[in-house]
Amino acid sequence: MTSKLEQELEEMLPFWNKLQNEQKAMLSQRAIDKNYLTGTILHAGSEDCVGLFLIRSGRIRAYIVTEEGKEITLFRLVEKELCIFSASCMMRNISFDIWISAETDVETILIPSSLYSQISEKNIAVANFTNEVVSSRMSDVMWVLEEMLVKSFDKRLAHFLIIQSDLEKTDTLKITHEQIANHLGSAREVVTRMMKYFSEEGFIVLKRGSVKIIDKQGLKKLI
C-alpha cells in the first residue's frame, strides 16, 4: 500500500516514475518531515549541506549576504517547489554562499544530500532534472544582479511591492522597511525615503509595520 509520503513524493518529483523501485523505496524510507517557524534559518552558507527541501506549504527565501552585512534576496520558493541550493555540497561550482530562511511558517520534506546525489549519479532523469533546476535558479540570480546594476532604486522597490502583493494575494502588506531593505540589499533609511515619496505620489498608504498599495498601476508604470 502506497504511503502518504510516497504519494507526495510522486506528486512533487517529476522524475518519480523514471526511478527504479529500489530508488523509490530509499527515498520513501529516508525522506523526513521537517517543519520550520517564520524566520528560521534552514541553510547557512556553503559549509551547510542539510539536504533538499520539498515545500509542502509556506514560502522560503534564498539570499546572499554582502561583505557589508546587507542581505539580497535571490529568489523565493513556494508550495510544491524544490530547494536544491540547501544541498550545496552537491554543487562544487557554486562560488558564493547562499542562505535560506523560512519567510513564513513552512512544512517540508527533507531529502538527505547523500541519498539524492547517489540516485542522481545512477539515474539520468534525476541528473537532468537537477541541472534544469540549477539553471533556472541561476537565471533568477543573474536577473537580480542585473536589476541591481541597471535599474534605479525606485523601479526596484516598485517591482518588489508588486511581486510581494502577488505572493501574499493582498494589497495590504505586513512588512517593515527593514525587511524590505533586506530583500533589496539596501539601507532602511533609503527604503523609508522612497516609501515616503511613493506615499506622497499616492501609490501607497503607510502604516506602522504595513504598507497598503492603492495604485498598483501607478507602481507598474515606474518599472
Rank of each mutant, 00 (worst) to 15 (best):
M26C: 04
Q179R: 15
S165F: 07
S95Y: 13
L77R: 00
K34R: 15
V191Y: 00
T40A: 12
K169E: 12
K4Q: 15
L161R: 03
K216W: 04
L54S: 03
Y36D: 03
E146A: 09
D140K: 06
K151N: 12
Y36A: 06
Q23K: 05
V191G: 05
E200Q: 09
I100M: 07
K70R: 12
L145V: 13
Q20N: 15
G209H: 05
S152R: 13
F75P: 00
F153Y: 12
S210L: 10
L9A: 00
K196N: 14
K4V: 15
G51N: 10
L149C: 13
N128S: 03
S113I: 06
N128K: 14
I163C: 02
F153S: 02
D97Y: 07
E121L: 13
F129E: 09
L161T: 00
S139D: 13
K34F: 13
V144M: 08
G51T: 04
D171Q: 12
D166V: 15
A187F: 05
A181L: 00
S88P: 05
Y36N: 02
T104P: 02
T104K: 02
S135E: 13
V134S: 05
T108I: 04
V50F: 11
Q217W: 13
I213H: 03
I55H: 01
H177K: 04
D97S: 14
F85P: 01
E168H: 04
G209L: 01
T73G: 02
L9E: 07
E68F: 06
M138N: 13
M142L: 15
M1C: 13
L54H: 05
S113D: 15
A187K: 11
D33T: 12
R30T: 12
R188T: 10
R193M: 08
F53Q: 00
T172L: 03
E168T: 09
A158T: 03
D154N: 14
R188V: 11
E22N: 14
M194G: 02
G39V: 05
S199V: 06
F75A: 02
E81K: 03
R61M: 02
S136K: 12
V211P: 01
L222K: 07
C49V: 10
F53N: 01
K34H: 11
L9C: 01
A62P: 04
L222R: 05
H183W: 10
I162V: 08
Q118R: 15
I94G: 03
K155F: 08
L37I: 11
N35V: 04
L219W: 10
N128L: 02
I94C: 09
F160H: 09
I175D: 00
K216F: 06
T108M: 08
E201Y: 06
K220C: 06
L145N: 07
E107F: 14
N21W: 15
E6R: 14
S152V: 06
F53D: 01
I214Y: 06
S3A: 05
S210I: 07
E6V: 10
R208Q: 10
E6S: 14
E11F: 11
K70Y: 02
E8V: 14
G185M: 01
I100D: 10
G209V: 12
E178C: 04
S95D: 15
F203Y: 08
F160K: 01
A44D: 15
R208C: 00
